[in-house]
């Protein structure tokens, strides 16, 4: 098991290196010169050149790449061109809202969808199953921003149960932190609840027809023990895969949700950075998101081996 995890970790290093290289190249070859933007419309060519030298933009490709990678290893993502603050500091400021939203959404989706899917499979083609199907179809077909504004209108404006917008840090108390996140989590979570419910149902249906489930029933186990102890772990591999994909999709989704609910997270940081051509900032955020993808995939792979003792790569 340990050897397996170590091997997967070592395997992730070249992937991260490759991602760093690609991000660097993308921005190197991208049109538009940050020095011109910083200097402003009225700057003389000499001033622009001075800024270029100061930022190291006059160096050849390989030197700039070398500096970039070296700083990266030291955990230095450079300084924001716009605000002159370290990129890592700026990202750090924005991490909590995004992580809170992402983690809560996934947690909510799994907690709702897995039991719902399992129940739908156990009672296939009965009322519960049909209800789960309706929920899934709704979740799939209504876009995040529609659900979002609808929830705001009902629960924030009409009923005034939750704040309309904004974010309160966790340090200000769990209650206010949570009340700000309820609506965004719900609206963002709908599609994942739909997705995970469907996959759980399909995977459980397959497992429930297996011989060892018949053995478990022949043993006299209750329905509950059969679903939770015998079936769900066997059905877990496809579910874990989809949760992993869900986390990846979520990173795209938070950009929209953070805009709708005015949450100062990483998603908005990225949008702002792109609008300002803040190259180090863009690099930093994309690298962070890519690393999260890689780590999530790693976790999913390792979870396979935990769920199923037969899996060893």
């Amino acid at each position: 098991m340990l050897a397996f995890i170590i091997r997967r970790l070592i395997g992730a290093i070249p992937v991260i290196a490759l991602v760093a290289l690609i991000i660097f190249c993308l921005l190197y070859f991208a049109p538009g010169d940050p020095a011109t933007i910083i200097a402003g419309d009225l700057a003389t060519p000499e001033e622009v050149q001075r800024i270029r030298v100061a930022l190291g933009l006059d160096q050849p490709f390989h030197v700039r790449l070398g500096i970039f990678l070296l700083n990266l290893v030291r955990g230095d993502l450079g300084t924001s061109i716009f605000s002159n603050l370290p990129v890592t500091y700026l990202i750090g400021q924005r991490l909590e809202p995004t992580f809170s939203l992402g983690a809560l959404t996934i947690l909510l989706s799994v907690v709702v969808a897995v039991p719902l899917g399992a129940l739908a499979a156990w009672r296939a083609r009965r009322a519960v199953d049909r209800m789960a199907l309706v929920i899934s179809v709704l979740g799939f077909s209504v876009p995040v921003f529609v659900v979002g504004y609808l929830l705001i209108w009902v629960f924030a404006i009409k009923l005034a149960w939750f704040p309309v917008q904004g974010y309160t840090p966790l340090s200000n108390g769990v209650g206010s932190w949570l009340s700000n996140l309820v609506l965004p989590t719900l609206s963002l979570g709908m599609v994942y609840i739909a997705l995970i419910t469907r996959i759980t149902r399909a995977s459980m249906l397959e497992v429930l027809s297996q011989d060892y489930i018949r053995t478990a029933r022949a043993k006299g186990l209750s329905d509950r023990a059969i679903i939770w102890r015998h079936a769900l772990r066997n059905a877990a591999v496809p579910i874990a895969t989809v949760v992993g994909i869900g986390v990846a999709l979520l990173l795209g989704g938070v950009v929209v949700t953070e805009t709708v609910f005015a949450i100062p997270g990483v998603g908005r940081l990225l949008v702002d950075a792109i609008l300002r051509r803040d190259y180090p900032m863009i690099q930093g955020v994309i690298l962070l998101l890519a690393s999260i993808y890689i780590i999530v995939n790693l976790c999913v792979d390792i979870s396979y081996a935990i769920f199923d003792p037969r899996i060893r790569y």
């Binding site: 060892y212 018949r214 053995t215 478990a216 066997n234 037969r310």
Partner: peptide, 13 residues
Amino acid sequence: IFQEPMTSLNPVL
């Protein structure tokens, strides 16, 4: 007891 010993035991327990 069943015919298929290979599939009659739960593989993850």
